[in-house]
Design a binder for these strands. Sequence first.
RNA 1: GCUGGUGUGGCGGAAUGGUAUACGCGCUCGCCUUAAGAGCGAGUGGGCUAUGCCCGUAAGGGUUCGACUCCCUUCACCAGCACCA
Length: 784
Amino acid sequence: MQKYIPANIEPKWQKKWKEEGLYLTNLSDTAKKYYVLVELPYTSGDLHMGHWFTFTMGDILARFKKRLGFNVLFPNGFDAFGLPAENAAIKHGIHPRDWTYQNMERMREQFETLGTSIDWTKTMVACDPKYYKWNQWIFLKMLEKGLAYQGKLLSNWCPVDQTVLANENVEDGKCWRCGAGVVQKEVIQWFFKITALADKLIWQDPPQADWPKHLREGQNNWIGKSEGMILDFDRIKVFTTRPQTSDGATFLVLAPEHPLVSKLTTKEQKNDVESYIKSVKSRSELERKESKEKTGEFSGSFVKNPVSGRQIPVWIADYVLMGYGTGAIMAVPYADERDKQFAEQFKLPIIKTSFKAKPSGQKQTQYHLHDWSISRQRYWGTPIPIIYCDKCGVVPVPEKDLPVELPYKVDYAPQGKPPLATAEDWVRVECPKCGGPAKREVETMDTFVDSAWYFFRYLDNENDEEIFDKKIVADWMPLEIYIGGPEHTLGHALYSRFFTMVFKSLGLIKFDEYAKKRIHHGTILGPGGLRMSKSRGNVVNPDKEVKSYGADAIRLYLMFLGPYDIVTPWKTEGVNGIYHFLQRVWGLQEKAGVDSLSLRDHEDMRMMHRTIKKVTEDLVELKFNTAIAALMEWLNHLSRKEQVSKEEYKTYLCLLAPFAPHITEELWQNVILRSASDEGSLTNVSSNELRDSSLIAQNDEFQSIHQQPWPQFNDKYLAEEKVKVVVQINGKVRDVLLIQKDIINHKEVIEKMAFNSPKSQKFLKGKLVKKSVYIPSKIISFVV
RNA sequence: GCUGGUGUGGCGGAAUGGUAUACGCGCUCGCCUUAAGAGCGAGUGGGCUAUGCCCGUAAGGGUUCGACUCCCUUCACCAGCACCA
């Protein structure tokens, strides 16, 4: 027997599977289909452990479902637009496109070494005009529907990356990419009106799709719907969710950015207010959030509280946000903690509220969610299909002129204006309306637009006429399962739901939710328990690990670590353990495949059927770790035997195949070929010749193990001949009886046996049995 | 502060009302070996007056013949959101 050397078998089978097109999906066969998706990777250059972890899960599911007879689609693409490409370009003097395509090439090869069953013919690349043309098309459609608009808003601005950031991309007041402190700046930009669908985006109870509770609650929280009222305090409108406390409003507070601030400020207060506003502006978001003290300044003006009739002062303070409600509040220090703190700090009156006030006002629903700002002042993204004409104003690019292609030659170094502005020939354009001289929009779309709908495009990725064929999408969507990271809860996972709803309103699809099930995967940390990062130097490189242990061992190791959502460090000893397991599987061929050996032994049959059942059920429930444990238990059983029958051996390989596709394929082909030559028909033929011979095509067993039907279990083998029944006395285990199957349902007999057993007698002697409970095949419980 | 989640051996974890610690790692002992490693076999929650018994799933209480599992209280940790009026 040859030694198990993964490097000798893994590339060989990867090549063969690819040549034979084993994983190509025929989309016209929709009788029993299964679409499994893993979040597409960003083209950063290398697959990291996280990719291995999530794509192994997806791959195991794809292989398992295929073996159950499903027509499985498991595609993948690349999130290829974005800032890192541009930053790398600036740093290394390589064009973002070249950098991206080089990375993509390397990543495709790495996906192959992982042994995934991805169908690469159904793919998409975000920076390909064939793809982003449809981003532009969606933009135009949304513009028509009033779901895209241009507006001027205070926005998060990253001074280092020189771009606007969505709320979701600001972490602790810092840019999620470069960590620079974000400042507020008023900018004209394009928005998607996600707030128009805020109500529809709220998750119901029970949920309309099987998505994690954590995600549903998180999104609902982020959407932040609250019902309240707009009340008028003279000219000032405030929003409140508790109008019944308005009799206790003893002052008003305006956000420093509120448009009425300058009007309301009196001459005497002018200097103080102006210096206060100046100090607010100079504080960063972070400082503002961290300081516990409240700050503010009196405007000098008073307004009338319409309920109490009192004149109350108007203050200006930054604990009131311009971006929520009306940017002004009535302060009820008696009922509100923050107002109370402010009142105490500035010695403002606190009066009791009746909680019964009924002010007149207008009902209003308010959301925390803001419209999605999609303009980015950078180069490497989808051009926004808009033309500015001096005569006609803002003119959308006509559909027939799509795609608006991103010019290759630009000066993408940041210089305070969008890089596309430097491509003067590209910018200069005829107005589609009047034919006069005009200029293109020089900003690009947020890359989250690319990933908001890519899974639709996989299904019809070559289509130049429409975004996708409605029928194919109707046949294949929604996704059966979408595997992704919890960090996308408020970004990608929300945007893609929004896009799906927009597609429905455009009549492209008929469903609201694009994935029946979503799961959040875990994280593999560095060996020391910290997040892997280059700067920490604790990155475990999958390529290196594959060289030492092979892809199968890494796949199994990752899946065996724990549940799919586990957050846990990488441990080399653990990989050793799995490698050892694979070597034992490899060694099994020594005593395996003995044809004459039939499965007479009941325990052998029981172990086999038990394992089939366990692995099958665990895969359905995505419990990869316990499925592997069951396979280990069966291997322990098989290892103790002198010989292993062909049926057991083949079943074993079949069950292990989704987890470890290479070693099982090799062993499968070996055992099939060996039995063929045992039959005498194929002597003096080498393995390779045999594989290519015509005989193989005639017999299904000669096909890849990944095309074999999934093993079936039969309940009749599951029962043990003698069943263990535990004897409990007053809740404590005192004895275990071995009971023949045929009397297991006779309560009186079992009760007598349990009562009379010497061990039980020790505890029962001279005591009165008050009650006995018998659960067949499990337990008999006495109360004395 | 709000929301969601978690708490089990030396470690990752298993068991979701019925023998707690499956499976793996680590460790101990033994076999094999010139030796080391690998491999194979046995053991591995704690305690004790040890053929047996007691304790034990963050802490305390409850329901039940029986609780890691269900209910109540408390504590700790993780994640997300957060001056949202």
